[in-house]
Simulated assay, not measured.
Amino acid sequence: MIDPLFDADDDANTPLTPAEREGLIPTYITTRAELNAAEQENIAEADEWAFTRRRGSILDVDVLMTLHRRMLRRVWKWAGKPRQTERNIGVPAHQIEVALHQLLDDVRYWVEHRTFGPDEIALRFHHRLVAIHPFPNGNGRHARLAADALAVELRQRRFTWGGASLVEAAETRKAYVRALQAADGHDMAPLLAFGRR
Rank of each mutant, 00 (worst) to 15 (best):
T160F: 14
V152G: 03
Y176I: 02
P136R: 15
A143R: 07
N137K: 01
G56H: 06
G90Y: 13
A8L: 11
L5A: 09
H113N: 12
N36C: 13
A169I: 01
P82R: 04
M1Y: 15
Q40K: 02
V177Q: 12
A146K: 13
F194K: 08
H101E: 14
A44W: 06
D7G: 11
G23M: 09
M71D: 03
S57P: 01
E41Q: 05
E171Y: 08
E45M: 10
D106Q: 15
R69I: 00
R158M: 03
V107N: 05
N137F: 04
T85A: 12
M1E: 14
L191W: 08
T66N: 05
V177N: 08
A169L: 04
R158C: 04
T27C: 00
V111N: 14
A122Y: 10
G56A: 07
G80P: 07
R55T: 05
T160S: 15
Q84R: 02
I43D: 08
G185C: 04
E41Y: 06
V130F: 10
P190S: 01
A169V: 04
A19W: 00
L35D: 02
S165N: 08
D105L: 08
Q102T: 14
E41S: 04
W78G: 08
W49D: 09
Q102Y: 13
V91P: 01
N88G: 01
A19Q: 06
P18N: 09
D9V: 13
R87L: 10
Y109W: 06
L103H: 13
T52I: 09
W78I: 11
E97I: 00
Q84L: 02
G23A: 09
P190Q: 02
A149W: 12
R157C: 11
D11A: 14
V107E: 01
Q40T: 12
L59R: 05
A122P: 13
N139I: 08
H101P: 00
W110E: 11
L191K: 12
H142K: 13
P92M: 11
D119C: 14
E120Y: 13
V130I: 15
R53P: 00
L16P: 09
E112H: 11
D106R: 15
I29G: 02
H127W: 06
A50W: 09
V111G: 14
P15D: 09
R54N: 04
E97C: 00
H126C: 15
D10A: 11
L24A: 05
V63W: 00
T17A: 07
D187I: 05
Q40I: 03
I96S: 04
I25R: 07
A151T: 14
A50H: 12
W49A: 05
A79Y: 06
Y109P: 02
H126P: 03
A169Y: 05
T172V: 13
N88M: 01
I96G: 02
L35H: 08
R141P: 03
I96M: 03
E34P: 06
